[in-house]
């Protein structure tokens, strides 16, 4: 191991894009989750409000993130989340995974998971649960992460 690569394992951080898509102006939840992921040592990029799915895909690619966390309270999740997945796959960014949270009815979750959303966290979920999930699920893909 050359000096430059020593410690690379510890340097690698889980990077998460926290995104708000469409006409949805409430981001308290998104910011609370961002803060929680920061406390867990992750690097969180926040898109700001009212982004298009195209913007979010571009941001995820430019920022080289492992995850996109979509906070959605508008009711448009069944349209926007599958579209986000499709655009990512078309951009050959199929390895970037999506989690979602917000106001999402229980009965919609199976369809979302079939359409490329890895996990849905409903209101009431603790930050620790989200952190646990991301840590656990990030580990096998990035073997250099401890």
């Amino acid at each position: 191991m050359t000096p430059a690569t020593a410690g690379a394992a510890q340097r690698r951080k889980i990077r998460v894009l926290i995104a708000k898509v469409g006409l949805d102006g409430h981001d308290v939840g998104a910011r609370v989750v961002a803060r929680g992921l920061l406390d867990a040592g992750m690097e969180v990029i926040y898109t700001g409000l009212r982004r298009t799915t195209e913007d979010v895909v571009r941001a995820a690619i430019e920022e080289d993130v492992d995850w996109i966390g979509v906070s959605i309270l508008s009711g448009a999740h069944q349209v926007l989340l599958p579209k986000l997945r499709r655009l990512l796959d078309e951009a050959e960014a199929g390895d970037i995974r999506i989690i979602a949270g917000g106001i999402i009815p229980q009965e919609d979750i199976p369809a979302l998971c079939e359409n490329g959303v890895s996990q849905v966290f409903l209101s009431g979920t603790s930050i620790a649960e989200i952190v646990d999930y991301l840590m656990r699920e990030s580990a096998p893909q990035s073997k250099d992460m401890t």
Partner: peptide, 14 residues
Amino acid sequence: SPYSGGAVLGDRIR
């Protein structure tokens, strides 16, 4: 963060 090493990167909002 000096404690966790994590960060919230918000410059992209603009």
